[in-house]
Design a protein around this nucleic acid. Structure first.
Length: 195
DNA sequence: GGAATGATGTACT
DNA sequence: GTACATCATTCCG
């Protein structure tokens, strides 16, 4: 199924839920890798102190204020990169952090990038999945409709009936912990470790 | 098993 | 100087 503009209708929370089950695909010179999204977190513009957009636009977070369906990739803790899907509209500053993937295509390449030999912890966290997928800040601001990094919505006709989505507090934030903006597949072994 | 720790760019006090 | 949308490693018990 092809990504359309209508995918970004509704609130960022709704889009964060809708992203569960969608496929993320990256084509690089090294090869193609893909995974099914099993965990997301919504970051809002209003009343969300944990959001990067909370204190206005800076060069670092500019992509978060860009168009829906584009990537916001940022560098954190001096070591890791995290990937978000901007949910727009332009100037608003809302996005959904991709926190975990169930690896699908290009697993050997992902294992090589991560320097491990088990698929178990390959993409179970936002910093891990960007390494495995080869996602860097070079992709910041790029379109997820076309380009090397693409998003493919879940095919609703083949939706897994056991696909229960749980909502809970976000991970690693010190403010806004009362907001249930983290979404994950229940009973999926590829969600991130920290609960 | 769980807690503490180090790696360290970017933004802000 | 401090905090941060993290992770791997080390040190406990």
């Amino acid at each position: 199924m092809r990504l359309t503009k209508a995918f970004f209708d509704g609130t960022t929370e709704e889009i964060a839920r809708r992203l569960i089950g969608a496929m993320l695909v990256h084509e690089s010179e090294q090869g193609l890798t893909s995974g099914r999204i099993v965990e997301t977190e919504a970051y809002l513009a209003e009343a969300d102190p944990a959001s990067h957009s909370a204190r206005g636009q800076t060069p670092r977070n500019a992509a978060m204020f860009g168009r829906a369906g584009h990537a916001y990739v940022y560098f954190i803790y001096g070591m890791y990169e995290c990937m978000n899907v901007v949910t727009g509209p332009v100037g608003r500053g809302e996005a959904v952090l991709i926190r975990a993937l169930e690896p699908k295509e290009g697993v050997p390449l992902m294992l090589r990038r991560r320097g491990i030999d088990s698929v178990e912890n390959l993409c179970t966290g936002p910093g891990k999945l960007t390494i495995a997928m080869g996602i860097t800040r070079a992709l910041n601001g790029t379109s997820l409709f076309r380009g090397p990094l693409r998003l493919t919505p879940a095919d609703s006709s083949s939706a897994d009936p056991k696909m229960n989505i749980l909502a809970s507090a976000r991970v690693g934030v010190s403010t806004g912990q009362d907001l249930p903006l983290r979404f994950r597949l229940s009973e999926n072994r590829f969600v991130s470790r920290s609960q």
